[in-house]
Deep mutational scan, measured.
Amino acid sequence: MTSCHIAEEHIQKVAIFGGTHGNELTGVFLVKHWLENGAEIQRTGLEVKPFITNPRAVKKCTRYIDCDLNRIFDLENLGKKMSEDLPYEVRRAQEINHLFGPKDSEDSYDIIFDLHNTTSNMGCTLILEDSRNNFLIQMFHYIKTSLAPLPCYVYLIEHPSLKYATTRSIAKYPVGIEVGPQPQGVLRADILDQMRKMIKHALDFIHHFNEGKEFPPCAIEVYKIIEKVDYPRDENGEIAAIIHPNLQDQDWKPLHPGDPMFLTLDGKTIPLGGDCTVYPVFVNEAAYYEKKEAFAKTTKLTLNAKSIRCCLH
């Protein structure tokens, strides 16, 4: 018999989150649709729960009410004593943790798909938090293969000092899905179709896995975050240069030392320094102006996964 890495157990509980950011409308629209008619997301033997994560922000069509829901799922915020004085999103995070967690427990949901849009030209993107997770690498390989020839990129946010504390991190297997470009507060049919297909293929993978299909060893190309880059700023902290036209919409493309990065209003080009080629992502993302992030630098690498098969009882 072929030796293989056996994944822990079959997958039982899956959640699909929309509206973690209330103005990213593809996930909101799909989740609302699936709450009314969820036939397309159901798979035999699998509990799939669509869920609106930040209903107040969705109602106002804004990213958040008090603070970013997708950055506060750490033990400090989840452990705060519940009171009306807490920011709305912290209270909501505790409610979500109660419903789908608790985080880092045996009772937490197996998989959470968190649906997002970006204003950046990132196409279909899967966000991975753990480079050693054979199950998710296999799932992402399946999704990428199923979507081809449509490109699907994998963004690895594993980093020693950049801690995200994402909404989906309460699950055993957290999956971020990011599709763009799409303006905030807008629905685009092409973007919706791409996100819908990503979810379909992900659920198909889980179904095949649960039925005992063995997935042979595989490898995927990923883009691992190195650092986030702020806009150049003046002495008052105001933005002093904008994304250069040569960099705009060039997510995932190589940016070499000396290539144009920013452009000042008086026409001066600010190039990339250093001696390493990087791959920019979230270029000129609207939501990241407040976070002082013009783009993120990534490096390209390959992740390998062992063969996996479900432990059938």
Rank of each mutant, 00 (worst) to 15 (best):
V281Q: 00
S3Q: 12
G180K: 01
P50E: 00
D110Q: 14
R233E: 12
P181F: 01
P149S: 04
E227H: 06
V179L: 12
S307Y: 06
K213V: 07
L301G: 06
P254F: 00
K291W: 06
Q94V: 07
W252T: 10
P50W: 03
I72F: 10
K197Q: 11
K81M: 09
Q42E: 09
K224M: 04
M139R: 00
R132Q: 12
I170K: 09
K144D: 00
E84A: 09
L203N: 01
T166K: 13
Q248R: 02
T26L: 03
E158W: 01
F215P: 02
I127E: 04
Q94L: 08
M195N: 04
I11Y: 05
F209Q: 00
V58L: 09
H207Q: 06
A219Q: 07
F209N: 01
V278Q: 04
R43M: 04
Y142M: 03
T264V: 03
K60N: 07
P183E: 05
E76C: 09
T2G: 12
I96E: 11
P183R: 02
A165H: 11
L312D: 06
I96V: 13
I220F: 04
A7M: 13
H116E: 04
D251P: 01
L265Y: 09
I170S: 06
L86V: 09
A15Y: 02
Y279V: 04
Y109P: 07
N54G: 05
L30T: 00
D190V: 12
Y109G: 01
N134Y: 15
P149C: 04
I127S: 05
S83C: 07
G18V: 03
D230L: 06
I170A: 06
Y223P: 00
V175E: 01
C152V: 06
Y289A: 15
D259L: 03
N246G: 09
R168N: 13
R92H: 07
D251E: 06
A287F: 12
K197P: 02
R309H: 13
N23L: 03
K163Q: 15
E293M: 13
L162T: 13
L265Q: 14
V31C: 11
L162E: 11
E238G: 15
A93Q: 08
N54H: 10
T269N: 13
V229M: 11
V48F: 01
G45F: 04
T277W: 04
L247G: 03
V28I: 13
I191K: 06
D275G: 12
E89S: 05
D130L: 02
E9F: 15
K172W: 03
S146W: 07
D249M: 01
T166P: 11
S307I: 04
E178T: 15
Y155F: 07
L147D: 00
D85F: 13
H116Q: 11
D204F: 00
C310M: 09
S105Q: 13
E285A: 11
H116K: 10
N70P: 08
D130K: 03
I137P: 00
Y142I: 01
V229P: 01
E235R: 08
E238F: 06
V281S: 13
F209D: 00
G258A: 10
Y109F: 07
E106V: 11
H98Q: 11
R92K: 14
Y164G: 15
V222H: 01
E290M: 15
N133W: 03
P280A: 04
E95D: 15
E84H: 11
I6R: 10
G267E: 06
G176R: 15
S146G: 12
R233G: 04
L35G: 14
D193H: 08
W34Y: 11
I112V: 14
I206N: 00
C67G: 07
P50A: 14
E84Q: 10
E211I: 09
F73R: 12
F113D: 02
K200T: 14
T167R: 09
R56W: 14
E178S: 08
H33D: 06
E227W: 02
S161E: 12
P257I: 05
F73K: 09
L69G: 06
T44V: 10
G101C: 06
E36T: 10
A294E: 02
G273T: 13
K200L: 12
R168F: 09
E158H: 05
T299I: 14
N70I: 05
H313P: 11
P87D: 15
D85A: 15
N134G: 06
F209I: 05
I52L: 14
D230M: 12
G237N: 13
M82K: 15
V90I: 13
Y153A: 15
L156K: 03
A286V: 11
D74N: 14
E106S: 13
E238W: 05
Y288H: 13
P232A: 03
V58P: 05
H313K: 10
S161K: 11
Q182A: 11
D230N: 12
M198S: 10
P254N: 03
E8F: 12
D74A: 15
C67D: 11
L162W: 10
H201N: 11
L312F: 11
H201R: 04
L136V: 08
K59W: 07
M139F: 01
P271E: 08
E178I: 12
A39T: 11
Y153F: 15
G237E: 06
R92C: 14
N54D: 10
F100R: 05
I143T: 02
A305P: 02
K59A: 12
E285G: 09
C218I: 08
R168E: 08
I111D: 02
L156R: 01
